[in-house]
């Protein structure tokens, strides 16, 4: 049943997302730069890096899956080719992820300031709304790290894996 579910288009990822053969598309390198920037932000605020993983999971899902409406589809298409839109989307995802995962939320004004006012408060909040709509408000998906740890916890009683290799 799980394989069948994975094979449906609902859960398939666009081939075009981060495809290195298309010169117009944003690249894995663009994504990595943004992840590093997100790490700087969460490290500065003493937040968990898992919050970044959660933000990138939302960004990837928004861009990698079929959109649920014409509007979100248009934003997704733009973000796939426009680094500035992609950056705004990632910033909005981090903004949302902090609210969901962290004890302390950052106000949108302070967040815009931390982004050096590259984007306005209205742009960040507007993109947050589009992101949430695009994800059908499903923003608690497990990150790859959490899935890995979950599998590890099932395996540990049966195998001897050195603790220093868990993380």
């Amino acid at each position: 049943a799980m394989i069948k579910r994975e094979l449906t288009t609902k859960y398939s990822c666009f081939d075009a997302y981060l495809n290195p053969s298309d010169p117009n598309m944003i690249t894995a390198g663009d994504r990595m730069k943004l992840v590093d920037w997100c790490y700087d932000i969460v490290d500065h605020c003493n937040f968990s890096r898992e919050t970044v993983a959660s933000a990138m999971e939302m960004t990837d899902r928004f861009l990698g899956m079929p959109s649920t409406s014409v509007h979100t589809a248009r934003v997704s298409d733009e973000a796939l080719v426009d680094p500035s839109k992609f950056q705004l989307l990632t910033i909005a995802a981090l903004y949302t992820s902090i609210k969901i995962s962290e004890k302390v939320a950052i106000s949108s004004e302070l967040f815009a300031e931390m982004c050096s006012h590259v984007y306005t408060v209205e742009e960040i909040e507007g993109m947050e709304r589009i992101l949430l709509i695009g994800l059908s408000w499903r923003c608690h998906a497990p990150t790859a790290h959490q899935v890995g740890m979950s599998i590890l916890s099932l395996l540990l009683p049966y195998v001897d894996i050195p603790e220093e290799t868990w993380g």
Partner: peptide
């Protein structure tokens, strides 16, 4: 101040 309300975001999730 905070975009989509945190309480609602968590409740919905």
């Amino acid at each position: 101040k905070e975009g989509f309300p945190i309480s609602a975001l968590r409740e919905i999730g």
